[in-house]
């Protein structure tokens, strides 16, 4: 049944393009969320956490979306390479940043903090 197979591939192509676009958009929105965190958090160590949202889930979703839209396997292999490199290097550079900041004598702010109320309760 060549026609049925053709229908199936066409269907799969449409589905994966739509899903890939949606995942790319989701990842880009997560990048914005991480950036908002970088802008809002009070000191360098907490900003690192917000930046790692961008580096892990934002980049992960964008690359997953691109992998779904990949036209052939070479593109897929390249995207997987980027994903592996990005995960390894972002973790390492976060650690190096935190270590360098601590070595330079920057003390992290410790303890519960809440805008507005002086002694806020910590939500889990």
């Amino acid at each position: 049944m060549p026609e049925a197979a053709n229908m199936m591939t066409l269907d799969w192509n449409t589905v994966r393009t739509a899903f890939g676009g949606a995942l790319c958009l989701l990842g880009a929105l997560l990048c914005i969320v991480g950036t908002i965190g970088v802008l809002r958090f009070p000191d360098i160590y907490t900003r690192l956490h917000a930046a790692s949202v961008t580096d892990t889930s934002g980049a992960g979703f964008v690359l997953l979306g691109m992998a779904l839209m990949a036209p052939d396997w070479i593109v897929l292999v390249k995207i997987v390479c980027i994903l592996i490199f990005l995960m390894l290097t972002s973790a390492t550079s976060s650690h190096v940043l935190a270590n360098a900041a601590l070595t330079a004598g920057l003390q992290p702010k410790i303890g519960p903090m809440r805008k507005g109320q002086p002694d806020g309760e910590v939500s889990p």
Binding site: G34, T35, V38, I44, R47, L48, A51, T54, D55, S93, L97, A100, A101, A104, L106
Partner: peptide, 11 residues
């Protein structure tokens, strides 16, 4: 601080 800038550039 310097480290904030490096963090921003890395991201």
């Amino acid at each position: 601080t310097l480290y904030d800038r490096v963090l921003a550039v890395n991201s």
